[in-house]
Design a protein around this nucleic acid. Structure first.
Lengths: 189, 189
DNA sequence: ATCTCCATGTAACTCGTTACATGATTTT
DNA sequence: AAAATCATGTAACGAGTTACATGGAGAT
């Protein structure tokens, strides 16, 4: 029984465990994945990743093997332990708190103080960014479906596929809304 | 050479200016709005709001009048200045950085390590939360449309309405995806 | 020659949350 | 009687960003 307040585990720790549950990775590889594949819904810089990785190891949730690599320091490959998988399993079932921050919406909320050309400018920029992102996701979905990820419920591949589908839904909804707003603003002179 | 780099203005400062551009408010009223009306895309606690408000005043972007009120300290009503509106106008046109964090997606990404009943449990909870939120937004849209907000492009009311529409789109897309996932997991035994 | 990728970490700082602190009025 | 609402703030901490630091290998 610990009397004091045991320090809370940051969500990033579970994001890293989720990556390691799929395959062993170096810290560098994890921080790359926290940009691109899962960066759609969770991001972190390498400077945030490394301290959390040490902590995971102190908790016994991961272990690492060190070997010679590029750069001045040795490279570490991290592996999740049974305790780590158990901890991840518990966390998955705890309630998610919502509440995201969205700068584009905040800008739209304040846009009535700006010139319409400025507003249309950032909306058109958003339109093209979201169209690009949608194209990326659609290509990935095609690939994922071609090797049957859609029918592999219960696997990591299916979980990837499920989050990808949400990415597509998000980008489509966002695009439709941005285009609606652009039309509205253009047709009201 | 160390040029005195002016400290960066936090995004919350612009969120507060966006509120004050609509009407003068107390810090308390602003922190309430950062829960409910605009809490869908931007949140903050009162402990974060008050220091930023002092800073806005030091910058000359707001001014406040103090009067006796409930509680041990006097109440302050904050008003945006012309400089504040100008600063908000500039900020609206600067590029928004994206990248949100979404705990539900992170949980789904890791869900393949958990029991299917656990996964279905948090998905059904998410389904009902999003259905509730959608109902709230739809009621607000009805009200907004009844007094013509949809055709008032360039006004604060229209900006409110535009963000509300995105809220509805988001909740609908989220609901459709959660329901698809539930069906997929249920039908794969 | 310069840039990017690989691969690690630390330092300084800002942003955001939780808890502490006070106290009258209104609602349950 | 207890809780919520109005209304302000501070303190301690955790989360997240930017910058500093190192250095080999391969690409432009």
């Amino acid at each position: 029984m610990s009397i004091g307040r045991e320090p809370t585990i940051p969500t990033l720790a579970y994001a890293l465990l989720a990556l390691l549950a799929r395959e062993p990775l170096t810290g560098y590889e994890m921080s790359r994945q926290l940009r691109d594949p899962i960066g759609f819904f969770w991001q972190a810089r390498h400077s945030q990743v490394y301290p959390v990785l040490s902590r995971l190891e102190r908790l016994g949730w991961t272990k690492s093997e060190t070997f010679a690599g590029p750069g001045p320091r040795p490279t570490k490959r991290h592996v999740i332990t049974d305790d780590g998988i158990a901890a991840l399993r518990v966390w998955v079932g705890t309630p998610a708190r919502r509440g995201g921050r969205d700068e584009l919406l905040l800008r739209v909320y304040a846009s009535w103080v700006a010139d319409r050309t400025v507003t249309l400018g950032f909306l058109r920029e958003a339109e093209s960014r979201h169209a690009d992102q949608l194209a990326v996701y659609l290509a990935r979905r095609k690939r994922a479906e071609s090797w049957g990820a859609a029918d592999a419920a219960g696997t990591a591949d299916f979980a990837d596929y499920a989050t990808l589908r949400r990415g597509i839904g998000f980008e489509r909804g966002r695009l439709a809304w941005v285009r609606w707003l652009i039309r509205k603003l253009e047709s009201s002179d």
